[in-house]
Amino acid sequence: MTSFKLQWCFLCVLIGATSAQLSSTFYSSSCPNALSTIQSAVQSAINNEARMGASLVRLHFHDCFVNGCDGSILLDDNSTFTGEKTATPNNNSIRGYDVIDTIKTQVENMCPGIVSCADIVAVAARDSVVALGGPSWTVQLGRRDALTASLSLANSNIPRPSLNISDLITSFSDQGLSTKDLVALSGAHTIGQARCTSFRAHIYNDNDINSTFATSLQGNCPSSVGSGDDNLAPLDKTSSTTFDNAYYTNLLTSEGLLHSDQQLFNGNGGTTDSQVQSYSSDSSTFFTDFSNAMLNMGNLNVLTGTTGEVRINCRKTN
């Protein structure tokens, strides 16, 4: 009898573990048009402003680095907690909340209470990359939404543009991501723009940046703090609205916009030099590794089963 109970309990654990796994077909029956609806809304947003594609990818990244991919970044402040939107890496920087709101409204109208905000963010990131010419991957679904957010973890966990390579590796490792994932995910900087506050120190103080490139940026980003802080520059000077491998080509000529970008390549056999060189000459390898890294990141500490909830409004808990 005892043996039977042990076997039964073990079976219960297996069933529980299986039910908690993400699945690419999670909404096939409960909301079959969810993915096509998200894709159409993302395409519309990018048609209106190409930069939004990069913003939606970044939204997913910043969400996943704080307690996992749980939609916590979308929560507004309330009487219980201060959310992540005003954290230093996010404040006046993260965009795309309104696009997620639009998608959520459309999906709720079709399938009330079924599709989580966290899943919408993950799918929107994939669809943004595809819309801008990058690779596709099969997003695993079934995430549930967090009931809280963390300002302190957003300030400490999200990698800063001032980090050196060793600190970048540690930051990603702390999240369960490899150095290979770090270099591949950094390739998302082949699209989008950055604020002067993010690259000012790099273009005035660092010696690992092409001097001509640095000078070309200084006219739009004065050295004095508070002057031109919100002025923008493309993260990829070559093709900032096309998802390609030019980001890595730029690093070979010391034309990475951020300090953290150029840290991936120093030309002296550094830890990540060979991977950067590989991606710069072979976009297909980059696309494959980027897709795999996005899947790895998208699976970080997800809430599934009965944990969390499916928010009706992505900005507040039910």
Rank of each mutant, 00 (worst) to 15 (best):
C221M: 03
T288S: 11
V99K: 08
G256R: 05
I46N: 02
S281W: 09
G133D: 03
I209N: 01
D63V: 10
V130G: 07
R51T: 12
N164A: 11
N90L: 08
S162M: 09
I191D: 01
N155T: 09
F81G: 04
N47E: 02
S44W: 06
R144Y: 13
I46D: 05
V276M: 05
V115L: 06
A146M: 00
N78I: 14
R311G: 01
L177R: 08
L257H: 13
P135T: 01
S30R: 13
S240P: 11
E255P: 07
S281E: 11
T272E: 00
S29Q: 15
N313M: 09
G298N: 14
V13L: 07
M294G: 00
N155F: 10
M110C: 09
S186Y: 11
S40F: 07
L147G: 11
F10G: 13
D119W: 09
D167Y: 12
V66G: 09
S260R: 06
A124N: 08
F286V: 02
G187C: 01
D145S: 02
G71Q: 06
T238D: 10
A122G: 05
Y248R: 10
L141C: 13
S173Q: 12
Q43N: 04
G256Y: 08
G256E: 10
K85A: 04
Q39W: 13
S40E: 13
I165T: 08
A125T: 07
F10K: 11
I38D: 15
V310I: 07
V302G: 04
S186K: 11
N292L: 15
Q39T: 12
S28D: 12
C221F: 06
S211W: 03
G134I: 13
D77R: 10
N266P: 07
S173I: 06
S3Q: 13
N313T: 04
A34C: 05
G228V: 04
K5V: 13
V66F: 14
T306L: 05
R95S: 03
R143I: 01
K316C: 12
F243D: 01
N205M: 15
S281V: 06
D70T: 11
L132K: 08
L232E: 11
V123A: 04
T304G: 09
A214W: 01
V183W: 06
Q262C: 12
L258W: 05
V57I: 08
A41C: 12
A125W: 07
N205G: 13
P161C: 00
C221N: 09
S254W: 02
M1P: 13
D230Y: 12
D236I: 01
T82P: 00
T190A: 03
L232R: 14
S29P: 08
F290T: 03
A34R: 02
S19I: 04
